[in-house]
Nucleic acid binder design. Sequence first.
RNA 1: GGCGCAUUCGUCUAGGGGUCCAGGACGCCGCCCUCUCACGGCGGUAACACGGGUUCAAAUCCCGUAUGCGCUACCA
Length: 481
Amino acid sequence: MYSPRCSRRLHRRMKLRFAPSPTGFLHVGGARTAIFNLLHARRYGGTYLLRIEDTDVERSRQHHAEQIVSSLTWLGVEWDEGPIYQSDRLERYRERAAELVAQDKAYRCYCTIEELEADRAAAEKAGKQWHYSGRCRIAAEIGDEREGPHVIRFKVTPGPIHFRDLIRGDVHFEGELLDDFVLLRSDDNPTYHLSVVVDDIDMEVTHVARGDDHLSNTPKHILLFRAFGADVPTFAHLPLILGSDKKRLSKRTGATSVEEYRDLGIVPEALVNFLTLLGWSPGGDRELFTADEASEMFDLSDVNKAPAVFDPEKLLWMNGQYLMRMPADEIYPHLVPFLGDAPPSLDELRGAIELNKSRGRTLRDIADLLQSYTIADEELEYDAEASKKHLKGDDLAERMRELHAALAAAEPFDVNTTEEALRQLAESHGVGAGKLIHPLRLALTGRGSSPPIFDVAVVLGKEKSLRRLQRLIDSLDAIAR
RNA sequence: GGCGCAUUCGUCUAGGGGUCCAGGACGCCGCCCUCUCACGGCGGUAACACGGGUUCAAAUCCCGUAUGCGCUACCA
């Protein structure tokens, strides 16, 4: 049986590319395309090229290109070649277009946009499907050349076009349905169709994995590859990523760019893992894996055909899984942007991070949790609801004073001695340990919930813990008076 | 409209003729662990779009239908 993954081009070094247009931030769909290309290249020892497709001068922006590059870097997507900017290669596209004209495979078209619009409107009015009239093609064939601004159109040859897509399998199109498409615009800049094919030939790209929205462009590209006498690369069209409304993921249904997820406090490893699982699965029950692990199993031909809905809930869960498995030293650099203007040092935070990393799903959550540790004692606020629940009983202040004394005597100040001290005190009063623990939690963290309180005390240190406990006692006394 | 593609729990998926009255994960619900909150453990909820074939046997193969999505530019 024919298997597309061991096709005829084994003699040629496998080469893949990611080719975004710099018209906005890196979209998560684009990020997934970049990741899938990377994984396939790594799996088969191929090379990976980054190419910026900025031939649309109207919409392309250099700063977007830079943002895309930095998002890819943040994700850990590393390329072997590039970034190559198509805007640096405009002459090459013009040259190739001229070749096709010289070979009679393309022609100059002098129709203006206005004329074409009028034709289109007329066709629509008549309820018919619009097609390019071909008037300039005919004129070119009888040698009736004009002067003035023009585009270069490709002469589409009729006949069926068939290709085997790594993901879709056999795909068929009818050449008759294709219009003579534009290769070179009237401003002398190439269209996507021209630049992408010229580049994939020049750069010896063997595998083109791109979004599903390009599937119906593929026959045009195949015709161009043939016109240039080049090998047609293997295609793989990735299904789209959908929003919860089952439409192409848009801002309406949530964040769409890699940067937004970064700012939400998602770690890159988690985003990559999550995106890799959208449309692909290593088989079995495996959910959590690194990009390196994935690249040992990944194959474009195993990617699902159906579009996948982006589920932010699951991303959050996965991010939590990553956070809780990461050592504090590894989390810290990712955390810094969320720590405000004067971020505490890693040494100050290490213990608190370890204690809290399994208690949040995003870096933001963790940063918020960490505040109770680094905040100045006098700025610590007691959660109203928890105070109401736990700060009661006439003898509370007295009990807290005793607890303060007991903890002050705890030596060394570790989880065992502090817990032992508190439990003994509780027992001697014939009350549950909770009667002391909950107020202590409020004293130390200001919150109704926290990591195990003796761990918190140890991380805060004896001095700070006692100071905070004393502060609670003082405020209880103040209220009593 | 034309062309193309797709369709397994709410969502991501496993599965590719019998081992599937469909497995895992997220979510949700319950229980356990427990000083609280998480984490973790256990259990539960929930799906083969529909209709015809082929076959001893279909989630799996074929054909329709429906629905959705994409493309239909001098955007990519």
